[in-house]
Every structure is written in C-alpha cells, then in structure tokens.
C-alpha cells in the first residue's frame, strides 16, 4: 500500500494505491485520481513548463509547455533541449516550438503569442543575455548573467 497526494487538481485527495492488488486506488474523488495513482507508481509523468529565448519581439522570453505529460525522469533533459532553442518573433499562441520532444511524442508549444518589435527589436541576442549589466562581460551560456556569476556591483551608470 502506497500513500500519495493526488496532484491532478487543487483538491489534493489523499490516495492509497495497492501495488499488490492490480494498483487499485482508493481515496480518490474522481476517475482522474485513480489514473494518476496508477501512473505515479508505474510510470510517473509531468507536464513541463519553462521558457525559451525569443528575439525580435516585445519580450525576450517565451513561456512554453509540453502539450502532454512526459516521463518525470526526462525533465532535466527536456530543460536542456528547451534552453538550446531560440525562436524569432512573431510567435503565435500554441505554435509548436519543438516537435516530438526527445522522442516522447509530446510537443513543446508556446504558451502565449509574442508580437514583433518593442523592447527587443532586432534579431541579435537581447542585451540582457548578451552582456552582464553588472560587469559588462560577455555571457557565454544562457544564465551566466546570473546575479551571482560575479561580485555584484552597482548597475553601471553613465559617468
């Protein structure tokens, strides 16, 4: 017997799953809970939500998600794949960003639309990613402009 909390909806039902008895689920208030309980012990999956870089748009990050749940064990690999892409504005809501992500059958899709122009108008990497606002150093990886990569100094002001 395994005790779980169902995460399918905010009700958070407390489930008991009986592995020895064909993964029979009790404690669920709806069929989705039973399905979750079974899957969680056999092959746990999660929907991944993250962001990818976008250039030429009104924002420099695009929220994305997998259109179906992917195996939990593949989340970090999927993050790597997402962090490697950079799309160009305009982006339509629901647009496929990566098809069949890592062979899971799930597509990585855009969570919103992003129009052209605005704060990040050209297609060169947005300044926030290109150089650190703290040291002016070029940033090699996506997040090496972390607030941390260097001793924080006052944001450079024109002297």
């Amino acid at each position: 017997m395994k005790e779980l909390v169902c995460i399918v909806c905010p009700r958070g039902c407390r489930l008991q799953v009986d592995e020895e008895n064909g993964y029979a689920v009790t404690g669920n208030s709806c069929p989705r809970g039973a399905e979750y309980g079974r899957n969680e012990l056999k092959n746990p999956t999660r929907v991944l939500t993250t962001t990818v870089r976008v250039t030429g748009g009104v924002h420099c990050r695009l929220p994305v998600k997998t259109d179906t749940a992917i195996p939990k064990g593949m989340l970090f690999q999927a993050m790597e794949a997402a962090n490697a892409v950079c799309v160009e504005a305009p982006v339509q809501p629901g647009q496929v960003i990566i098809e069949n992500l890592l062979g899971t059958g799930a597509n990585l899709i855009a969570g919103r639309g992003i129009g052209k122009g605005g704060a990040f108008p050209d297609t060169t990497p947005p300044p926030l990613r290109g150089t650190s606002p703290y040291t002016g150093e070029a940033c090699r990886e996506r997040h090496s402009n972390s607030f941390l990569a260097h001793r924080p100094q006052p944001v450079s002001r024109p002297s």
Binding site: R53, P63, L128, S146, L148
Partner: peptide
C-alpha cells in the same frame, strides 16, 4: 547583502526577463 528577493520578483526576473537570481 544582495541576494534576497521576494519569490514573485525572482519569478518575474526568471520567467520574463531571463535572469537567474542565484545558484
């Protein structure tokens, strides 16, 4: 010191502006 953020501010930095606020 620096490095203390409200969670929502960190959320905005990361999800909209593309900054990681820490390691």
């Amino acid at each position: 010191p620096s490095g203390i953020f409200t969670a929502g501010a960190a959320q905005r930095y990361l999800n909209m502006e593309g900054y990681m606020v820490g390691r």
